[in-house]
Design a protein around this nucleic acid. Structure first.
Lengths: 250, 250
DNA sequence: GCCGAACCTTGATTCCGGTTAACTCCCGGA
DNA sequence: TCCGGGAGTTAACCGGAATCAAGGTTCGGC
């Protein structure tokens, strides 16, 4: 029998106890979108926020589900994807802690058109539409943050389109590795670094618009060329500069 | 010698005469983003607006150019595209009258990362960053419109990603034709319609992530199957329902 | 009416990447 | 301990779409 996949709500709006609100406020204070708001504002926000614990594999929402707010990842990983008529899946993005998703759909008052599924046991916040709209009426700078966030998202998406349409599979993988390295701090000395893939290779392959098999093949090629060393989910890069310059060459 | 491609500015901010402002206000009144604003607000806006006439082939901005506002198409067509290192071009979108572009870049305070080029002689408005930001501070409903617009844009882009990654070339073309038909009013009776491609086949091919050659071939296939009749830039669809249902089949 | 330039089509060929199908490895549970 | 399943790898094969290379069409300018 399958493991029961659940989405547990730790707190529900309008029924929170004082300690709970304090807990939420502490969490909210670190949300990029809300950074710098004063405690009163945060408390107002907390009314519409609930914490969610989702098990690995659990689906937060399907395409077509109504949207009542947006989500913010506290820990774990959530994948956004759509599924074709023939059942094959394409991962759009893998959301990591600190990132939020679902805002655009919320503002459009339309149902979700992608699905969200937990790749690992995760904890997230759900912020209700109502408190967002209230805060927008009240605070113009909050609007600015939202606009900035949406613009940023748009930029990333266009960059993705560019990646998909102009780069070969190999180039996309090399680009991914380099970006992954950059965002993972820089503990590597003299060009030697190791990065750990955030999730299964199959999922990352889909994120890069490749099949699992092709992804595997390219990793093998890169390894053969001495550009990387694959060790399970960990990838060692002996010379990152060389990967950057010769990674695209066949 | 090449035809001189120019961008002419009909009016410059802060130096307009009264008739000019009136002219601009009349234009602005029909902009989706500004619909319903009262005359006073429109007049404030007009200060930062200038009308542009661009010849076919003229480039509005290149990747890397600084962004000082956003653009709105009054008539003509503008293509947004990026160019790969090897010089090949990918069209992201073909902007038509009533559509605007460049907002996201403006809000990010970064240079453009795509280029914009006129496909035909076109007329557009340039709305300066400054008046947009002023109006945002003044009018929360204006913020809402911007947010709605950005959300919409994001949605379209994700739909494009879905199209690129999950649909075959043939399916993309059929989808394009059906959408084009829908948006062009519905003068067709009993399933018979004709649509005129908005620009050259090469450009549309790029918009759909296909080479010109492949695009041509697929049109030929569809014609052979009796699903369409190609007559230069005009495409006749004898039975739109049949195209919808059997267009994807080989 | 002729010429050149875009634009489009067509055919031959190549190749990137998807499909299919074993097979291995690893891990967790009964 | 054995089993089963998910993840990953590998290899053979296939096919959609790109590339290369000619032609053909259309159209505006002189």
């Amino acid at each position: 029998m399958p493991v029961t996949e659940t989405v547990r709500e730790t707190s529900t709006p309008h029924t929170m106890d004082q300690p709970d609100t304090g807990h939420l406020c502490r969490l909210l204070a670190h949300v990029p979108l809300l950074e710098g708001l004063d405690p009163g504002e945060l408390a107002r926000f907390a009314r519409g926020v609930r914490e969610q614990h989702v098990d690995k594999g659990a689906v937060l929402f399907h395409r077509g589900d109504p949207c009542h707010g947006f989500h913010l990842v506290l820990c774990g990983q959530i994948k956004l994807a759509f599924t074709s008529a023939e059942g094959q899946e394409k991962v759009i993005e893998i959301m990591r802690p600190g990132q939020s998703f679902g805002e655009a759909v919320m503002f459009m008052e339309k149902p979700y058109f992608v699905m969200a599924q937990a790749l690992t046991d995760s904890r997230l916040l759900h912020i209700a539409k109502s408190v967002v709209f209230e805060e927008m009426d009240r605070d113009p700078t909050f609007c600015r943050r939202i606009i900035a966030g949406l613009s940023q998202r748009l930029h990333h998406l266009i960059a993705d389109v560019e990646t998909y349409s102009l780069l070969s599979g190999r180039e996309r993988i090399v680009g991914y590795l380099l970006r992954e390295e950059e965002s993972s701090g820089e503990p590597g000395l003299c060009g030697r670094v190791s990065i750990r893939l955030p999730t299964s290779k199959g999922t990352i392959a889909s994120r890069l618009n490749l099949t699992q098999e092709h992804f595997s093949r390219i990793l093998h090629e890169l390894a053969e060329a001495g550009l990387i060393v694959v060790e399970g989910r960990t990838i060692h890069i002996p010379d990152i500069e060389r990967l950057r310059t010769t990674g695209a060459r066949y």
